[in-house]
Nucleic acid binder design. Structure first.
Lengths: 133, 133
DNA sequence: CCTTGACCTTCCTGTGACAGGAACCTCCAT
DNA sequence: ATGGAGGTTCCTGTCACAGGAAGGTCAAGG
């Protein structure tokens, strides 16, 4: 199977698949013409990677997860631990974004949004302490 | 004022301040010895940038916001519009992260986390359709 | 006067996970 | 033979800086 087919089946761009080979996540064989030649196991790995990436795991996490997947003697605790650390990072990001969202929403609600120049958003950015809690 | 003082007062790393000059966000004067020489207006701009960045605005957004701030004839609608677009992006990111969080939380909760190899997280990643809703 | 150390300068590289595109090769159908 | 759709490698760009090398500058202490 060529990269185009694999791309269509896995939903991953060909660029991404080549990149994954570059960094050693997959090792497809080569045909005589130099084309990458993918087998079912490669497809399976790519699908695994696609799902792990969709859950937000980093490439290095993916590498570890794949290693664990292929390690018959793994402990599920290791997987769970990795996932929990990842969850903590997600929660931190959500928290950051939520705080930005709250602050920005309040400012937006205070802005008239008309053709006059007065703007609480700019006032806030410029360092006016609004005094409102 | 030298970059170290400005860094301490603004809370921005010296690296960041130099970068902001590189990309034209600030234009501090130079002393005879080649050191950057910051005045109050520079400090004010950096504080503005720091707050805008803390709200998650991109550098290009910051550039626009500063231009609007210095434009006496601006319409607050323009500022509000920019902020609302940014808010929409924040909401999209939160939504993405929230979905990851939900999916991952469910998987983590189903994982025993002991020394046995069986792991629903890996099963899911490998493509097992759990059938559970 | 000399040195030490803190501060400053520029310049180059690396980050994460690819996307875009150039230049070129290969295959299949007509 | 040719045209077009695939494939290949390689280089650059993204975003907002961080890290570090190599070297210049300044004030204080011996």
């Amino acid at each position: 199977m060529n990269i185009g087919d694999v791309s269509a089946r896995s939903g991953l761009p060909a660029k991404t698949i080549r990149y994954y080979e570059d960094i050693g996540l997959i090792k497809p064989l080569r045909s005589a013409n130099g084309y990458r030649s993918f087998v079912a196991a490669d497809l399976h790995k790519l699908a695994f990677l696609g799902r792990a990436r969709a859950l937000g795991f980093t490439i290095e996490d993916c590498r570890t997860l794949m290693a664990l997947y292929h390690d018959e003697s793994r402990a599920s605790a290791d997987v769970k631990h990795l996932a929990q650390e990842h969850l903590a990072k997600i929660e931190a990001k959500i928290s950051d974004l939520q705080m930005m969202h709250n602050a920005l929403t309040e400012l937006v609600e205070c802005c008239a949004g008309d053709d006059r120049p007065d703007c609480p958003i700019l006032s806030d950015l410029s360092g006016i302490s609004s005094g409102m809690t």
